[in-house]
Design a protein around this nucleic acid. Structure first.
Length: 922
RNA sequence: GCGAAAGUGGCGGAAUUGGGAGACGCACCAGAUUUAGGUUCUGGCGCCGCAAGGCAUGAGGGUUCGAGUCCCUCCUUUCGCACCA
């Protein structure tokens, strides 16, 4: 055995052993229960980042742990290979996205291998390969047949100079990232997947996912956003001679079977596409302005109504007023992102129209408000400034009346005032006032009564509203799955027949940032109509990359099946037993995958309700952000490794760029990203320390679910520990030399205590494994080594004449090292593998059983109890393990330290917590 | 803005259930070994205090014999917000 720990050499050797023995090839087996351990596959951006190392180490720890626990483990890996960065790289370097992507995959695969992950590489897949994405196209066609895919318009960012659609990420301060031109919103036709049809099941099934973190389930439930409320209408009559448009269908989901539902389900209207949507269509001068509210109890407090700028009535009002037209235009510029819309300064303008309150008949002014979202509900809201915070501020800003109609409930006692917002007047536990016949009613009764009255007038009723919107999958980009549709001048939009799949994406395109690259490719574009055979054009839009990642976990079960999307092996491996990935995917990716699974189930392709039985959401890896801003507003980011932070005498921190010594601005902390240039390349860590130390450090430095602000301070501790382990193993390379069974009762008291500690630490570590708390497992490994080293010190000082035999010591060390190496092996597989063999424990540590504590070693005759007086720690006592409470009380009250602090006062009460502490209350 | 989480020493973090706050490390300080050290070992290390003891888990309240843990209000940070993946 080598005396010195050389990580790189033993890691190469161990990896060779695994590779040559095909150790991680997973095959369906009836003998052992399967365990499908899946980490979210990476986007092949070029190199692994810290988040990958963290993610895949967690997955590998679980894989190896369950492997040793006797499960038949599958851990596959693949590449989420379509996406925008490949096109950006093409624009920057002139390399086709395909070549860039395949090169990156090769590089990152090498990195993953050097980290020693127990991956079954025979199942590797890449979503940009035609044999994968053909099934995207195939399922798209099945969904089209079922009406689960349909067309409608959607809003996109349009760069008028490059004449191209921009991703949100490519819009900076409202301008195109390359051209600097102000971005316009455009409505274009797109394909949608009807995820809203599954809203009810996606929501209800969350309750049947006990292995998911509560916070993720809460986020998904809120995203789906089922709210019970009242949908009702304000009738209006426009001035004579005006030409009001019809109200366009709203884009939210209305459930068909809810009680009191007045409207047909939205899905039917949406699929029809565009009916009633044309602003030019003639229309009546009378109409109904529909709104939705969850606070129908405050309907008597309506003092205005507000509509989104995109609302048809807004367009109509704008026709008669240049000022209004300008305002509507202003609202339509800028970001399409909801976060931007919601944080904008609230602005509004009166339309000059009024609408009629459905219950009082009062005329209510109609405003256009930039805070009203066209995408949610009806694109119109009732304004109740007294009981809604946004309405309150809007009313204060524009001098609209504020009318209290609910008396504060238990939460608030202060008098109602219109001077400032009082949150408690928003609560639902109040009672109606100033509300005519509804006075005195609580929330539930008021809503019932008001909904009934509205229904009687034919102006509304109770309604369920969903926040969830259908999933627009069309992207005006090159590097994605082609949408299998052919546009024929005669037959219209014709689906590509199955026999012509896949529609192959040409791999030699180099996008230049203008237009749609596929639209410039005659060889791709030109085709024959499958129906009539006449010349036709292919659809040039590609699919959202979330489509690719919505089912890859199924394909790992049968990656070699050229004839069908999935087969019976999916039934063997699925559901995924443990899914691991970043918390940033808590909503979209996980929701789309759940939806996709249910669709495939309903198409009879899988018999699975939910794809992921257990979910571990890894925290983000963050780093400092530094930048400089030029006068023209251009921002340059500097990597934190190039920046030096100084603290002056007064404790003020300042940062300068090392290369020029001039100051840079601190931009706080955020996730490591290319765009902010704050990434740390894990390769440096791997080159310097090797895989085991990098893995150990990653696991030790924080619990998997916590956000982690990157720092490599502490990596030395991990290195020191593994060096210490190696040296200790070297010192005891002959610990298996004893050839007799040793009775543990022959141990000295100190040795027995050490053994008890080892088993207790193991006991705790096994508990922590179940909680995915790998940082304390790593810490437990350090503690065990500390105990063993103390034992070694003890042995050095041993009195030869008194202690029976060296065999006791060797047996203890053998047992301790055996436990330690196995406990450690999921985290640092290489060194564990190597030492296991070197010390003669066996040929392969993966084949060894997982260590369990010996109950006999854990037993203690006496236990230590903490003693408190009035809840303050005043000492401790040792009592027999089986002492009863009365006996403990007597021992404690007789304790001198207790006597001192009680100092003659009468004892009111003695609280005994078995096994933990005693509290004397005086 | 809305939704979700997190705040504990100089730093990462620990503390199954409401029961000893600071395990295990990093950094730092002192010492030993060494020709040397990005080596190894020993000891110290929350704050105040000579000590007894007191104070401390983002801030402020509350419940309890007892609160880092439960409840309320607030602050800060991070993640998501539908075309980054």
């Amino acid at each position: 055995m080598q005396q010195k720990y050389n990580p790189h050499a033993i890691e190469r050797e161990a990896q060779k052993f695994w590779e040559e023995s095909g150790a991680f090839r997973a095959a369906e087996s009836p003998d052992r229960p399967k365990y499908y351990c899946l980490s979210m596959f990476p986007y092949p951006s070029g190199r692994l980042h810290m988040g990958h190392v963290r993610n895949y180490t967690i997955g590998d720890v679980l894989t190896r742990y369950y492997w040793m626990k006797g499960r038949n483990v599958l851990q596959p890996m693949g590449w989420d290979a379509f996406g925008l960065p490949a096109e950006n790289a093409a624009m920057a370097n002139g390399v086709p996205p395909a070549k860039w992507t395949y090169d990156n995959i090769a590089a990152m695969k090498g990195q993953l291998k050097s980290l020693g992950f127990a991956i079954d590489w025979s199942r590797e897949l890449a979503t940009c390969r035609p044999d994968y994405y053909r099934w995207n196209q195939w399922l798209f066609l099945r969904m089209l047949e079922k009406g689960l895919v349909y067309q409608k318009t959607g809003v996109v960012n349009w760069d008028p100079v490059d004449r191209t659609v921009l991703a949100n990420e490519q819009v900076i301060d409202g301008r195109g990232w390359r051209t600097g031109a102000p971005v316009e919103k455009r409505e274009i036709p797109m394909y949608y997947m009807a995820i809203t049809r599954y809203a009810e099941e996606l929501l209800a099934a969350l309750d049947r996912l006990p292995g998911w973190p509560e916070r993720v389930k809460t986020m998904q439930a809120n995203w789906i956003g089922k709210s019970f409320g009242v949908r009702f209408a304000f009738p209006y009559e426009l001035p004579a001679g005006s030409n009001p448009p019809p109200l366009s269908p709203s884009s939210h989901a209305l459930l068909p079977k809810e009680e009191g539902n007045l409207e047909p389900p939205l899905f039917a209207r949406e699929r029809g596409g565009g009916e009633g949507g044309s602003p030019e269509a003639p229309a009546p001068e009378k109409g109904l302005l529909w709104v939705f509210t969850t606070r129908a109890d405050t309907i008597m407090g309506v003092t205005f109504c507000a509509i989104a700028a995109e609302h048809p009535l807004a367009a109509h009002a704008a026709r008669g007023s240049p000022k209004l037209a300008a305002f509507v235009e202003e609202c339509k510029r800028g970001s399409v992102m909801e976060a931007d819309l919601a944080t904008m300064e609230k602005k509004g303008m009166p339309t000059g129209f009024t609408v009629t309150h459905p219950l009082t008949g009062e005329q209510v002014p109609l405003w256009i408000g930039n805070y009203v979202l066209m995408a949610y509900g009806e694109g119109a809201v009732m304004g109740v400034p007294a009981h809604d915070e946004r309405d309150f501020h809007f009313a204060r800003q524009y001098g609209l009346p504020i009318r209290q109609v609910v008396r504060a409930g238990a939460a608030g006692t202060a008098a109602f005032t219109t001077d400032r917002w009082q949150g408690w007047y928003e609560s639902k536990d109040g009672v109606c006032v100033n509300s005519g016949k509804y006075n005195g009613l609580g929330y539930d009764e008021a809503v019932e009564a008001i909904a009934a009255d509205l229904k009687a007038k034919g102006l509304g009723g109770k309604q369920v509203l969903w926040r969830l919107r259908d999933w627009g999958i069309s992207r005006q980009r090159y590097w994605g799955t082609p949408i299998p549709i052919i546009h024929c001048p005669g037959c219209g939009d014709v689906p590509v027949p199955d026999r012509d799949l896949p529609v192959v994406l040409p791999e030699d395109c180099v996008p230049d940032g203008t237009g749609n690259p596929l639209a410039k490719r005659e060889d791709f574009l030109k085709c024959k109509c499958p129906k009539c055979g006449r010349p036709a054009r292919r659809e040039t839009d590609t699919m959202d990359t979330f489509v690719d990642s919505s089912w890859y976990y199924l394909r790992y079960a049968c990656p070699d099946n050229g004839g069908s999307m999935v087969d019976e092996r999916v039934g063997h491996w699925l559901p995924v037993d443990q899914y691991i990935g970043g918390i940033e995917h808590a909503i979209l990716h996980l929701l789309y995958s759940r939806f996709w699974t249910k669709v495939m189930r309903d198409l009879g392709l899988v018999s699975l309700d939910e794809p992921f039985a257990n979910l571990l959401t890894q925290g983000m890896v963050l780093n400092e952000i530094y930048f400089r801003k030029t006068d023209s507003g251009r921002i340059t980011y500097y990597n934190p490794s190039e920046v030096e932070v100084k603290t002056d005498d007064r404790g003020n921190r300042s940062a300068v760029l090392r290369s020029d010594g001039r100051p840079v601005e601190a931009g706080g902390i955020g996730t490591m990203s290319k765009s902010r240039n704050n990434g740390v390349d894990p390769q440096q860590l791997m080159d310097r320390y090797g895989a085991d130390i990098a893995r150990f450090f990653m696991m030790f430095t924080s619990p998997p679910e916590d956000t982690l602000v990157w720092s490599d301070a502490g990596v030395e501790g991990a290195a020191r520990f593994l060096r210490r382990l190696w040296a200790f193993a070297y010192d005891h390379r002959d610990c298996k030399r004893h050839d007799q069974l040793v009775g543990w009762t022959m141990l000295s008291k100190e040795q027995q205590e050490a053994r008890r500690k080892v088993h207790e630490i193991l006991n705790q570590a096994n508990y922590d494994f179940g909680k995915f708390q790998f940082n304390t497992v790593a810490s437990a490994c350090m503690k065990i080594l500390n105990v063993l080293q103390d034992l070694q010190e003890l042995e050095k000082r041993r009195d030869e004449s008194r202690v029976p035999s060296i065999r006791n010591y060797d047996a203890l060390i053998e047992e301790g090292l055996g436990i330690l190496l196995r406990l450690l092996s999921p985290i640092t597989p290489h060194i564990s593998h190597h030492l296991w063999r070197e010390l003669g424990f066996g040929a392969d540590i993966l084949a060894a059983p997982w260590p369990e504590p010996d109950p006999a070693a854990l037993a203690e005759d006496e236990i230590e109890l903490v003693v408190q007086v009035n809840g303050r720690k005043r000492g401790g006592v040792r009592v027999p393990r089986d002492a009863d409470n009365k006996a403990i009380e007597n021992i404690v009250l007789a304790d001198p330290a207790v006597q001192k602090h009680v100092s003659g006062q009468p004892v009111k009460k003695v609280v005994v917590v078995p096994g933990r502490l005693v509290n004397v209350v005086v």
